[in-house]
């Protein structure tokens, strides 16, 4: 009895010490972000003098105001928004229809086609970005939103996730509707899609993050400054920090670039963190 209690007590203090260490690490983890955020609210003249300090003193909104009125940043944000939203909606549409067919419909060649699509998971972006570039060059389609969106719809991850999801839906739900002679499209729209809102939400969030943060393809396809996404635009203004006089503005641009994804993350954290394992555990 005595040993058991002392054991529990020591385990308890070990847990506490561990928790304290993790909290310290977490604070250090956030430090760079807090520092950058603080700089974005400081006047550039102050930053020329010193970048030290985690509080925005003296405080100014000039960096943000300047970006909104004078720079290409609003344009870049607009491009990113168009691209990310379209890519998300289209991916959801393509992945859910194809996933439904693979999970629930009978047709010749189903198994082979599914393996053929899954094999695409092993093709990294770097293996296809040059031929894709040549393809869009031959069509004369670079520097358009379409060029930024369409190639990314070919990623098979969404189809894989939706197939897994639809397979797990009990069959009798559909069968009742089949007996009522409802068409496939009706069953899909009225029964399967509403059931899959959680999966679609997760897939949608990941697609949006992926689209917003995409770098290599927009870098080679959107070469006009007007057509940059915010991720590429922000990369283009990372000059020489030691000399730049507009440090605060660069930091403010970074905050603009992160605000939408951070907001999404804060609202949908549960979906995102648990969604990571969606494809792996089953």
């Amino acid at each position: 009895m005595a040993t058991a209690t002392s054991d529990r007590k020591s385990a308890f203090t070990v847990s506490n010490a561990l928790a304290a260490v993790v909290v310290v690490v977490a604070v250090l983890w956030l430090m760079p972000v807090v520092w950058v955020l603080a700089m974005s609210f400081k006047p550039n003249s102050e930053l020329m003098r010193s970048t030290a300090g985690f509080l925005p003193i003296p405080f100014t909104l000039d960096n943000y105001a300047g970006l909104l009125s004078l720079s290409a940043t609003p344009n870049w944000l607009f491009n990113s928004l168009i691209v990310a939203v379209s890519m998300t909606l289209l991916t959801l549409a393509l992945a859910s229809t194809a996933g439904y067919a693979f999970a629930r419909l009978e047709f010749p060649g189903r198994r082979i086609l599914f393996v053929f699509v899954l094999a695409g998971l092993m093709v990294p972006e770097q293996a296809v970005f040059i031929p894709l570039h040549a393809l869009f060059s031959s069509w004369g389609y670079h520097n358009t939103h379409t060029a930024l969106i369409v190639p990314r719809l070919a990623v098979p991850m969404g189809v894989f996730l939706m197939t897994q999801f639809f397979r797990a839906v009990p069959r009798d739900i559909e069968e009742a509707a089949e007996l009522d002679n409802a068409g496939r499209l009706t069953i899909f729209r009225k029964i399967m899609l509403p059931l899959s809102y959680p999966a679609l939400t997760t897939l949608g969030l990941f697609t949006f993050l992926y689209a917003w943060n995409d770098f290599l393809w927009p870098l080679v396809s959107a070469t006009d400054k007007e057509m940059y996404t915010i991720t590429v635009g922000l990369a283009s203004i990372q000059g020489n920090f030691a000399e730049t006089e507009g440090l605060g503005s660069v930091m403010a641009a970074a905050v603009f670039a992160s605000a939408p994804v951070v907001l999404l993350y804060l609202v949908f954290q549960k979906y995102i963190v648990s969604g990571v394992s969606m494809g792996s555990s089953k």
């Binding site: 943060n213 770098f215 922000l234 990369a235 920090f241 660069v250 670039a257 992160s258």
Partner: peptide, 12 residues
Amino acid sequence: VFSVSVVTLVWR
């Protein structure tokens, strides 16, 4: 959730 250009900016 940050993009690569935000991460590199922060760490630079």
